[in-house]
Design a binder for these strands. Structure first.
Length: 261
DNA sequence: ATGGTAGTAAAACTA
């Protein structure tokens, strides 16, 4: 395993966020930036913008312009896997690549809509399949990093007003359990290694809530989960708010993890 | 905050 600077960022449309993503890559030079909600089909992905700054780009979107995942990589990945091995593939929500001697799994977990909706069952099922996938393909892999928009806030300190969010699809006991079930394969929440017990650290501020950032009304639902082997060799993990200082943004914040010396 | 709005699209639908 070589050193690796890895970041995750829900862009809410890659085409409308290029002016943020490209300068951020040039300035921060991560080995890999995992993107979610690219909201573009494969024919229209802005490939050139990444190639022009010397980054490799892999992506998998859908025809209907929703969801979509991508990875910008400093070096060419050894192997790329789109979606699950079996159907339904979920190719616009799951992307796996081998980079710097480690396996990086990028997920955009379904939001779930509401507890009584079929989409919530789909979300729980997604976590279930994810566990199976990682267990089957990577149970022997000690260099493994699973990151992305998980649409789950694992702890009370990861939301504003936890008491009022018990019936929320990103905070219900059941969905936290589903997330934790995957994490129990041996993952460490890298951000919490550096900020244990610290409330008010969020990666998502709902753009429908007025002045959410200033009022500190948010969610920590984007995560970098790493194997214990990588956690023991990590250097830092932090939320980068800078790219989000633009007015009225609907993207999430950037979460960065640094592994190695 | 059972509202709010950004984004993809071309009327809703998702988040």
């Amino acid at each position: 395993m070589k050193n690796c600077k890895c970041a995750t960022y829900n862009v809410n449309s890659i085409r409308s966020r290029l002016h943020i993503v490209i300068p951020w890559l040039k300035e921060n030079k991560p080995d890999v930036l995992c993107l979610q909600e690219t909201k573009v089909d494969n024919e229209n992905f802005p490939v050139a913008a990444f190639q022009n700054i010397g980054y490799h780009i892999i992506f998998s979107g859908s025809k209907d312009g929703r969801n979509g995942v991508a990875m910008a990589l400093r070096r060419e990945p050894r192997e790329v896997l789109v979606g699950f091995p079996d159907k339904p593939k979920e190719e616009d929500r799951l992307l796996t690549a081998q980079i710097n001697g480690m396996t990086v799994i990028n997920t955009y977990v379904p939001q779930g809509y509401s507890l009584d909706d079929y989409r919530y069952q789909y979300k729980l099922q997604f976590f279930h399949r994810l566990k199976e996938y990682i267990e089957n393909a990577y149970s022997q892999e000690k260099n493994i990093l699973w990151c992305g928009d998980m649409n789950v806030a694992p702890l009370d300190i990861d939301v504003t007003n936890p008491e009022k969010k018990k019936r929320h699809v990103c905070f219900h006991t059941e969905v936290k359990k589903a997330f934790h079930n995957v994490a129990s394969l041996g993952f460490v929440d890298l951000f919490r290694k550096y900020y244990p017990n610290e409330p008010g650290k969020y990666t998502f501020f709902d753009y429908r809530v007025k002045d959410a950032v200033e009022r500190k009304i948010g969610w920590r639902i984007d995560h970098i989960m790493v194997s214990q082997f990588l956690a023991a060799r990590s250097q830092a993990c932090y939320i980068d708010m800078k790219p989000r200082v633009t007015h009225k943004p609907s993207d999430h914040t950037v979460l960065v993890g640094e592994i190695g010396h």
